[in-house]
């Protein structure tokens, strides 16, 4: 692994860490409002929206912290990758049904309306960054023959 790749790896890892720590932390502040955003997707039964709102921000936050600390990086990438795939599926379903809702991706009380289309494009970028981080991380491990 070259020095450039090492720098790139840490930059990508820290960018992802900040995204998920922030996304988790703001939603943890107002779980009820976030449940409202989840309900707006009209995918889950009423009470399940609360279950998602009560757990998802904490998973995002925990994964973000691991990325920040450079610990268990690949498991954290798998976890946030799986969640991002779910978000993308939900957004595609919103677009397909023509719902006009705020994605609720970050601050649930912030009122910064982000449409499903914009959120989907952003998630595609996020997936690319996840893939890049995974690839660079794997090279680090191969290079130094160390384990996670």
């Amino acid at each position: 692994m070259t020095g450039v790749q090492r720098v790139l790896y840490h930059l990508a890892r820290l960018a992802l860490a900040l995204v998920f720590v922030y996304a988790g932390a703001v939603k943890m502040q107002d779980v009820v409002a976030f449940a409202g955003h989840v309900a707006a997707y009209q995918i889950l039964p009423y009470a399940m929206n609360y279950l998602v709102a009560a757990t998802l921000p904490y998973i995002e936050f925990l994964a973000g912290i691991l990325l920040l600390l450079n610990l268990r990086v690949r498991p954290a990438l798998v976890a946030v990758g799986a969640m991002t795939v779910c978000f993308m599926a939900a957004l595609v379903s919103v677009l397909a049904r023509g719902l006009e809702i705020d994605c609720g991706c970050f601050d649930p009380g912030g009122g910064q309306d982000v449409t499903a289309g914009v959120a989907l494009v952003r998630d595609i970028g996020l997936m690319a960054l996840l893939a890049l981080t995974w690839w660079l991380r794997s090279r680090t491990i191969t290079g130094s023959a160390s384990r996670e």
């Binding site: 009560a54 998973i59 925990l62 994964a63 268990r72 690949r74 498991p75 798998v78 996670e148």
Partner: peptide, 17 residues
Amino acid sequence: IGLEACVLIALGALFGL
């Protein structure tokens, strides 16, 4: 890695719940 990701998700969910 998959197993650890599942543990991470379970821990996060448990924390939130």
